[in-house]
Amino acid sequence: MKQISVIVPVYNEELSIETFFNAFLKFTETLVKTEYTASVLFVDDGSKDKTAAILNKLIKENVNCKALVFSRNFGKEAALFAGLEHAVGDLMIPMDVDLQDPFELIFEMIKAHETGADVVLARRANRGTDTVVKRFSAQWFYRLNNKMSTLKLEENVGDFRLMTRQVVNEIVSLQENQLFMKGLMSWVGFETVVVDYTRPSRKEGKTKFNYIKLWNLAVQGITSFSTLPLKVWTYFGSVIAFISFLYGLKIIIEKLFFGINASGYASLMVAILFFGGVQLIGIGVLGEYLGRTYLESKRRPRYIIKHKLIKKVNNV
């Protein structure tokens, strides 16, 4: 029997966990006549509500349910990485607890795997359930990232995917602790296919991602796999310096040969403010890379597990 490990990061999801687990139990019932079994590994990312208590109750009643509880909130990327590190089985499938990743699609993903795929991506056919701002920002991110980085991300694909044990082993062997999991899971390569699906609306609870967190994640993704933002300022600065040289030469010629006075206060202030702003933006981009290098150099752990919730099992 091949084992499927469903990995579910959660943070303050007391309203969603039991609904998700009931759907998972129905999914396992449909696996009875196949050569697959399934278990679920929850990763509690330092929840402040009753999430840990609910998980403890479920685990006491179900041997195919386990959980890791973090000492504090380390973020979804760290929670997903921890799930991949501690899950056991032949196939790994990260999922969201809100049931917007449908269990029914897993059967199609398994079929794709059985035809030779090491990674099966679940791609949203449309983003009709998102707001206009979120649709636009997602489209902007994928296009910008794919133009700037040598690593191409499949558009409208989240963490929901099927991966073999070999793929997961390669991912967890990576040493970086500033994590952008979509990038890492794509960077390792392997034979990859895509299946399309229509994402349903969220069943319970509210999303914990706001636009600030999404922006930070996008910056993390671009700076993790591309150095183009650093190179741009070299080219931009060279062009500005060349234009400035030509303009300065023009002023000198006009002054020496034609006696024309140089432009006054207004043009000088515009130039100073413009170049000052450009320099600050360049320093900011440099600071993003330097800050991430600084954090990497500390070699702090990606997460800390407070305790593991298991039933009659010694190891997760």
Rank of each mutant, 00 (worst) to 15 (best):
E77M: 02
V43I: 15
K134W: 10
E85I: 09
A79S: 14
S39W: 10
L91P: 04
L55T: 01
F70A: 00
V132A: 10
V132G: 00
A125Q: 15
R72I: 06
S71F: 06
R135M: 10
V133C: 00
D101F: 06
E35T: 09
A117H: 04
V120Q: 04
N73V: 09
K50C: 06
N73Y: 01
A112F: 00
T37M: 11
F27R: 05
K33R: 15
N22Y: 12
F27V: 08
W140N: 13
R135H: 04
K48N: 12
N56E: 15
G128Y: 07
I54V: 14
Y36L: 04
V32L: 10
F74S: 08
D45K: 02
R127K: 15
T131Q: 07
P94V: 07
T51I: 04
V133L: 08
T34P: 04
F21P: 04
A78H: 02
H86W: 12
T19A: 08
F70R: 07
R123F: 02
F107G: 13
F24Y: 13
K76E: 05
T28M: 03
A79I: 05
F141W: 03
T37D: 09
L99A: 03
L80H: 09
L25M: 12
V43P: 04
A138Q: 12
G128D: 13
A52W: 08
L58W: 00
K26E: 15
V133A: 06
S39T: 15
N22Q: 14
A138S: 14
S137P: 01
G46D: 06
V133Y: 06
N64S: 03
L84Q: 05
A23L: 08
T51E: 05
L84F: 13
A67Q: 10
A87V: 03
M109E: 14
K76Q: 08
I59R: 03
F136C: 13
V40W: 02
V120L: 12
E61A: 13
L55K: 09
T131C: 09
V97T: 08
G116A: 04
L55Q: 10
L99N: 01
V69K: 04
P102A: 08
A117W: 06
R123T: 03
I17W: 02
E18L: 10
K76V: 03
T129A: 09
L41G: 02
A23G: 08
E18Q: 13
F27W: 05
L55F: 13
R135E: 11
L105A: 12
Y36S: 08
V132F: 09
D101Q: 02
V120S: 03
K57S: 14
K57H: 11
V133Q: 01
V40T: 12
I93C: 05
G116Y: 04
K57A: 10
A53P: 00
T30N: 11
V97I: 12
T115M: 04
L41I: 11
T34I: 11
S47M: 01
L99P: 05
F81Q: 00
V63K: 09
E18F: 01
T131H: 11
D118G: 05
V69F: 07
D101V: 02
K66M: 07
H86S: 13
G89N: 03
V97Y: 05
F141N: 00
A112C: 13
A78N: 06
V132C: 05
F70N: 05
A79Y: 02
